[in-house]
Write a protein that binds this DNA or RNA. Structure first.
Lengths: 212, 212
DNA sequence: ACGCAATGTGAATCTATAATCACAATGGAG
DNA sequence: CTCCATTGTGATTATAGATTCACATTGCGT
């Protein structure tokens, strides 16, 4: 079955990649060691040469998702000096991921029973990823506030969570309709609305200095 | 085990109720016929006197959730003439549900692999509930626009989805932290922000008539 | 009170899937 | 080239959970 013997490093990569694809496609629930093995071109028991258990695979998978998410945010920061542009960039990257079906499974995973139940370690893991992500967004917001581009009378965390709230319901619909819902269009419209909320309202005290 | 024989009508009620509680507690994934039976005071096979299959139970459960959601929205509408107040009322009701752990499992269900995978019928069912709900919210928004309380240059559906986006990420955090996240506080803050976005901006064309 | 239809039970079946293990093949270090 | 650690395989075990079925019990209509 296996083309050839490959180094554990390589196999681990392949396995996580396969698991990621399968999880995105069918959800964590349906993620079976057998399916992963088939996709990698191994026999089920072969998987255990490279991972201690299925849980182990999932942990590695979560780590990989975390890295992808963070890379996304960092790329957006690198390419955009303006905080508002940066946020929009993050948003659109997310949407692209969604459309490519690559990281769809993130919210699904986060909500998934598999995460919430039983395995407290995995739950903590997901919480860490989520928190980390929200903090990154919050940091961008904070910078925007410092620069006077964003209103300062709101907590960055609140803004960050609402930002996330643009993506998630769209993701739900995208899934439920099997891609029939135009996420990009929604994201753009929601973004516009979101901007109204987080930028400094015309005529407010905050904006006095701007108007004059 | 069973106290006494009960009518199917009664049993079906009990079974759905038990399934709802268990699903809220441990997620659909962990929802086993055996657990439901135990909670109702029956033996697993007894369940099949009242439901054809586990899928059947879940369908009934979804119907029940739909009714609860809609009842929630309708109550809010009944008690609030003003669209903005009405929306806030819906929001706070949701949050209360969240805190009571009663309908927590809705987003979890909606995202759950159990829904997305395999069973296209269930997926359509969830889509229907979701769409129905979003339409209700959209309807309130539409009324607000007609009354001139809300800005008219946004699609009600967009607003509705963003509204939903206030609740969902908060729900995620609430879960991941085991109730350690203050959802109520977040909802209030996010609501304030949300209002800024959806009400008519001061100085806009829309508001000219107001200012004069 | 009787009997039938509805309800409840316990054992058994069937399937899916994680995990283990003894054994086989491979390929790189020497 | 040879050996041995690494990697791969097939058979097997173990468990959990849905569903079925033959049989027991209950209680309602008459």
């Amino acid at each position: 079955m296996a083309e050839a013997k490959l180094d554990t490093e390589v196999r681990r990569e392949q396995i996580v990649e396969a698991a990621l694809t399968l999880a995105a496609e069918h959800g964590l629930r349906r993620l079976s060691v057998a399916a992963v093995a088939r996709r990698v071109g191994l026999v089920p028991s072969g998987i255990y040469r490279h991972f201690k258990s299925k849980d182990d695979i999932i942990a590695a998978l979560l780590d990989r998702v975390e890295r992808q998410l963070m890379a996304n945010v960092e790329a957006a920061r690198r390419e955009n000096a303006d905080p508002l542009d940066c946020l929009k960039s993050v948003l659109m990257r997310h949407i692209r991921f969604l459309r490519e079906g690559k990281v769809i499974f993130i919210p699904r995973t986060i909500f998934s029973d598999d995460v919430h139940v039983g395995n407290p370690q995995r739950r903590r893991h997901v919480l860490r990823i989520f928190t980390h992500y929200i903090e990154q967004i919050g940091q961008i917001v904070r910078e925007g506030q410092a620069q006077g581009a964003l209103r300062s009378d709101v907590e960055p965390k609140t803004v960050a969570l609402m930002f996330f709230g643009i993506i998630v319901p769209a993701g739900i619909l995208w899934h439920l309709t099997d891609g029939g819902f135009d996420v990009t269009r929604h994201a753009l419209k929601a973004w516009k609305l979101f901007c109204t909320a987080i930028t400094i309202p015309v005529g407010s005290v905050d904006s006095q200095q701007r108007e004059h």
